[in-house]
Design a protein around this nucleic acid. Structure first.
Length: 442
RNA sequence: CGGGGUAUAGCGCAGCCUGGUAGCGCAUCUGCUUUGGGAGCAGAGGGUCGCAGGUUCAAAUCCUGCUGCCCCGACCA
């Protein structure tokens, strides 16, 4: 991709509405544009990152045995009357009336709908366990949207729903999602800490929020530092096996949000190991038993011939929110510092002198080689000054910059700069290509 | 939903108090110079001054109402 033809409306000045750093940087880097309060258009650069995050979430859901479907954004009110939530949900739900005066709504979540899909087709315990998920836009009419995409009204969420015969098998479904989440967030360069969350009327120990630490986080969190160093389950994890030892490892060290904080238990953690910080919730997993299956009559016949309501859980990831969360965790004074796994492009080639035949040719060759190796490349071929190019490239935060100018080429070298460390290496073009492919291919 | 701000060019702002027909910086366009960390000079284009009423010879400016957006709090992936 050539920057001269790419729609990337960079802002030099910070729009005044942006308070927190991720919001500022997303606007300045031309990733999003606010259309109205809490509702954003995703510009090409922002969309690229959104898609990469989505894909990681998808891969890990699939790996854990969940199956993707896609449910609509607009739902009929009647479905929500079955669970009683049409009245209970309140003003956060965007209600719509169609031309036939039928009551509709823009979905804030999909428990009712997925339960409807399930009950229409699944009648036997033999078809369990089942986990269905989708990645779809949601709308919650927040009283006060803020922090850019971190708390928008329209947002992209992955929500999975598990169906099991009883509570014990539901626990296995829960554990699979727990492990999938550990892997998902780690792949995005985030340290997500599972914290026990309020289970409401259901009770029990099966609800966790996944929190990443960031100074601009919305809630205060307390944890034992030991949890930060726990190993992330590998790609080879067998999701059909008993995962409870992993869950035990991850739920033993103290970790709680302020709502669930137990000061006495926290005091028991050695002082040097105690940490209190601010956090952003990026995922939430929840077992809710028969809360929907019972009123909505989603039953299966068990091995004993008796009909029982299925035990369900739901598992959310705030996909669009993750962009903000990742930037909060990965930025510096000059701009964004994308982890390679979610970066909009892997490499930015800076052509210091567009129009110079040798420089243009070198850039084209480097672009071709890197692209052929499967990397996403953005070539800055804009006729502007070096300083402006460096500033732009630092702002958009691509993991590596490949700096190509006539001065270096005369000596047969180009420069590779790692965005995160600022480290620069002067190499031959071929060495540079090899180095980048080595660092970035996965 | 309570409290507080704010609305003037794509972005950031001044002008409003004391009414006289709109300005600055950045960005954009043209030309020349410049060229390894957000260049300089010269010129140009771009505005229903949030909307609707009212006062006045005259309203961005004064008055009334409405709306959008932002911030603080209560609530959420």
């Amino acid at each position: 991709m050539h920057l001269s033809r790419y729609f990337l409306p960079i802002l030099k000045e910070t729009p005044k509405e942006a308070e927190i750093v991720s919001h500022r940087l997303m606007l300045r880097a031309g990733m999003i544009r606010q259309e109205t309060a809490g509702i954003y258009a995703w510009l090409p650069m922002g969309l690229r990152v959104l898609r990469k995050i989505e894909q990681i979430v998808r891969e890990e859901q699939n790996r854990a045995g969940a199956q993707e479907l896609l449910m609509p954004t607009v739902q009929p009110a009647d479905l929500w009357r079955e669970s009683g939530r049409y009245d209970a949900y309140g003003k956060e739900m965007l209600r719509i009336t169609d031309r036939h005066e039928r009551e509709m709504l823009f979905g804030p979540t999909n428990e009712e709908m997925v339960t409807d899909i399930f009950r229409a087709s699944v009648k036997s315990y033999r078809d369990l366990p089942l986990n269905l998920y989708h990645i779809q836009w949601k709308f919650r009419d927040e009283v006060r949207p803020r922090f850019g995409v971190m708390r928008g009204r329209e947002f992209l969420m992955k929500d999975a729903y598990s169906f099991d015969l009883d509570k014990e098998s539901a626990r296995h479904a829960y554990n699979r999602m727990f492990v999938a989440y550990l892997r998902t967030f780690a792949r995005m360069g985030l340290k997500a800490i599972p914290m026990r969350a309020d289970t409401g009327p259901i009770g029990g120990d099966m609800s966790h929020e996944f929190i990443i630490l960031a100074s601009t986080g919305e809630s205060e969190v307390f944890c034992d530092k030991a949890i930060l160093d726990l190993p992330i389950p590998g790609e080879d994890t067998d999701f059909t096996a008993d995962l409870s030892p992993v869950i035990t490892d991850w739920t033993t060290p103290y970790a709680a949000t302020d709502e669930m904080h137990d000061a006495a238990a926290f005091e028991a953690v050695p002082e040097a190991e105690r940490m209190s910080a601010r956090g952003i919730e990026v995922g939430h997993i929840f077992y809710f038993g028969t809360k929907y299956s019972e009123p909505m009559n989603a039953k299966v016949t068990g091995p004993d011939g008796a009909e029982v309501p299925v035990h369900m859980g739901s598992y959310g990831v705030g996909v669009s929110r993750l962009l903000g969360a990742i930037i909060e965790a990965h930025h510096d004074d000059d701009g964004i510092v994308w982890p390679a796994s979610v970066a909009p492009f892997h490499v930015g080639i800076i052509n210091l002198k567009p129009g110079d035949a040798a420089t243009d040719a070198a850039c084209a060759d480097l672009d071709a080689q890197l692209t052929k190796a499967g990397l996403d490349v953005l070539v800055d071929d804009v006729d502007s000054r070096a300083g402006a190019k460096f500033a732009t490239m630092d702002l958009i935060g691509l993991p590596y910059q490949l700096i190509v100018g006539p001065r270096g080429l005369k000596d047969g070298v180009v420069e590779v700069k790692a965005r995160a460390s600022g480290e620069r290496a002067t190499l031959s073009p071929q060495e540079a290509v090899n180095r980048l492919i080595g660092e970035l291919s996965s």
